[in-house]
Design a protein around this nucleic acid. Structure first.
Lengths: 210, 210
DNA sequence: ACTTCGATGTGACAAATGTCATGAGTTGGT
DNA sequence: ACCAACTCATGACATTTGTCACATCGAAGT
């Protein structure tokens, strides 16, 4: 009997998968959560054999949870289950030595297969991502530049950004200028777009919406 | 026996729900698709009693399919199943007289309940959305202003926007200025954010990503 | 007929933005 | 010890943006 834990914030998928996994004779879902913190607390208690983690969940991301599990060095294996192929996520997952990385763009039977395979000590990664691994651009921006760009993304003026980061306005403009030249664009809007497309900048998407 | 059709592009959810619905004695999934066009073709053939449609699917949106079903005037009832509360979508769905509108942020049992209820002739809408219905701000921008803002959202300069829309640069700046004052902001970036938050501007989110 | 509103345009002006050169202090690596 | 890269800063300059005041024209409404 393989014990499972599921962290997935979309209730529809969470409950559907839970019920589906329970139908398998050799699988048992010992718990589930809709946010990262609850998941982490539960995992410490329950110590399941496999933790299925969505990345984009509130509070603490699935990758954060994976890191902690790695650090704790328990026998719990991690299967990341995420929406779409994002190289940066995948790389972090590989670094956290997760046992599996599956896209939601796969049928649910694949998840069941993956669970059984990782329990046999295998590592199962979505092939799309492994291929991409070599063609992905790496973030050319320094952390400071990224911070400036993140402020710019809020729609703030140079002056306000400077105030927020305790810099002079001139410095902020220099950073922006450096960013543009690195990204091959000529204004903040485009820079933000490029950075978001490449996932160098988080898509916080504002107050409402989602 | 209630016959169902499922249009949902996320394979994991599609297959999980299909299997789950099949487990119910009174429900039978006669088909499913991952894109709108296939769904429409199938629906014409299969004529299920209930069509469960995701909105954001490739090709033809779930709402487009709902419109066509409405126009065809068959007995197929529509249940919209979508990710998050977006007022504009909901309003369009209400206009298309869908029988149900459910968020993926609900457990899968709710979907089963909803299906049974709509078959009894009831209309089931997610309460979150009905409440919002009255507080939703209406778009103060004219269609021309929206077009200008959409161009600005691409990261284009005033000059380029003017060229694209066959306007003078001055006119474009006037529009932008009018937009800012209507939205209570002072630059394009903020205007774009506000417009997107209120779903007056589509979140196209660029080349990659998703 | 008169008014309002949207689409479109100009010109002028102030403020913000982007570019470039240049320099100094720090840190990490060879 | 030296170099490269990152952080932070100025100053000067050109360009872009954003604001304002006006003006014309057509459609819609009173």
């Amino acid at each position: 009997m393989i014990t499972l834990y599921l962290a997935e914030d979309q209730s529809m998928l969470n409950s559907a998968l839970t019920q589906l996994l329970e139908l398998e004779d050799d699988l048992h879902v010992v718990g589930s959560a809709r946010d990262g913190k609850t998941a982490w607390v539960d995992l410490q208690q329950l110590r399941p054999q496999v933790a299925i983690l969505d990345i984009e969940i509130p509070g603490m991301s699935g990758l954060d949870v994976a890191d902690r599990l790695r650090a704790a060095d328990w026998e719990t294996k991690v299967v990341i289950l995420t929406t779409f192929a994002q190289q940066a996520y995948f790389e972090r997952a590989v670094n956290a030595q997760v046992a599996g990385y599956l896209l939601k763009d796969s049928p649910s039977d694949d998840l069941i297969d993956t669970i059984r395979q990782v329990m046999q000590g295998k590592t199962v990664y979505a092939p799309e991502l492994v291929v991409n691994m070599f063609s992905a651009a790496t973030n050319p921006l320094t952390s400071r530049e990224l911070a400036v760009l993140a402020e710019a993304d809020k729609g703030l003026s140079t002056k306000t950004i400077a105030a927020n980061l305790y810099l002079s306005a001139g410095t902020v403009r220099n950073y922006l200028s450096a960013i543009f030249s690195k990204l091959g664009v000529h204004n903040r809007l485009e820079a933000i777009k490029v950075a978001k497309d490449n996932k160098w900048l988080t898509n916080e998407s504002g107050t409402k919406g989602g």
